[in-house]
């Protein structure tokens, strides 16, 4: 078990060191998410439309689209110089490799989200601070769901020639429950509702996270094998 966590740590460490040197992933995700929000800001008349109504959808669109950039990059790193083969030759448990990549994606996306939330607050003129606790919980649950499914599918599409196109095509339809749940909950939180009123949505996202984590554990061995 000790070696299992060491493997997860090794992969997260490697991805972090790479990112600290290149800064490719964070900068591209952050700029893309900012652009998505700006495009919507310029296309919506906020004096007519209630920002609390449209804001959650725009916020999650920014998270999901920019997160997809990160997922594409994540397994691209492993394909360069056939590093994925190098990983497959190690005695490391395949699920540990998966969780390492998933954790890296989760942390990178969460950092980006932490930077995007204040921008969202400023652009949409919504005070998030009174709702910060519940909002962070929703962002956490939604991001875990996105990263679990996204990492699984990006490992699958890593073997495909047109992986940049295939990943969103595979990911977005399956991600619908998480996106709907996260958007609805974010909207309700901004409307001042309590988390207790959203137990169905929380249950839906939790079920999604658990089901796809189980699916990843069961299938990752076959997916990573060529």
């Amino acid at each position: 078990m000790d070696q299992y966590f060491k493997t997860v740590y090794a992969i997260v460490w490697k991805d972090f060191v790479t990112e600290l040197k290149t800064r490719e992933l964070f900068s591209s995700m952050f700029i893309f998410a900012t652009l998505v929000i700006l495009i919507f800001i310029f296309s919506i008349n906020l004096s007519v439309v209630d920002a609390r109504e449209v804001g959650p959808g725009i916020l999650w669109a920014a998270f999901i689209f920019s997160g997809t950039l990160g997922l594409n990059r994540s397994f691209m790193l492993e394909k360069e110089n056939d590093c994925l083969q190098g990983l497959m030759l190690t005695p490391a448990d395949r699920t540990a490799i998966f969780f390492g990549k998933m954790l890296s994606n989760f942390v990178f996306l969460t950092i980006m989200e932490i930077f995007i939330l204040p921008l969202f607050m400023v652009f949409f003129n919504i005070d998030l601070l009174p709702h910060l606790g519940p909002l962070l919980l929703v962002v956490f649950l939604g991001t875990v769901g996105f990263c679990v499914l996204g990492t699984l599918l990006s490992s699958l599409s890593a073997h495909l020639k047109n992986r940049e196109v295939m990943l969103p095509l595979l990911l977005y339809p399956l991600l619908v429950p998480v996106v709907i749940g996260s958007v609805r909950m974010t909207g309700q939180i901004l409307a001042g509702k309590e988390l207790g009123d959203m137990s169905q949505w929380i249950g839906l996202i939790l079920c999604f996270d658990i089901i796809f984590t189980g699916a990843a554990i069961m299938t990752i061995d076959h997916i990573l094998e060529e």
Partner: peptide, 17 residues
């Protein structure tokens, strides 16, 4: 896999590290 090492024309080395 603990007992084997593989060398091929693909290096499996991370260029940024």
């Amino acid at each position: 896999r603990k007992e084997i090492g593989v060398i091929s024309h693909a290096s499996s080395i991370y260029g940024d590290l």
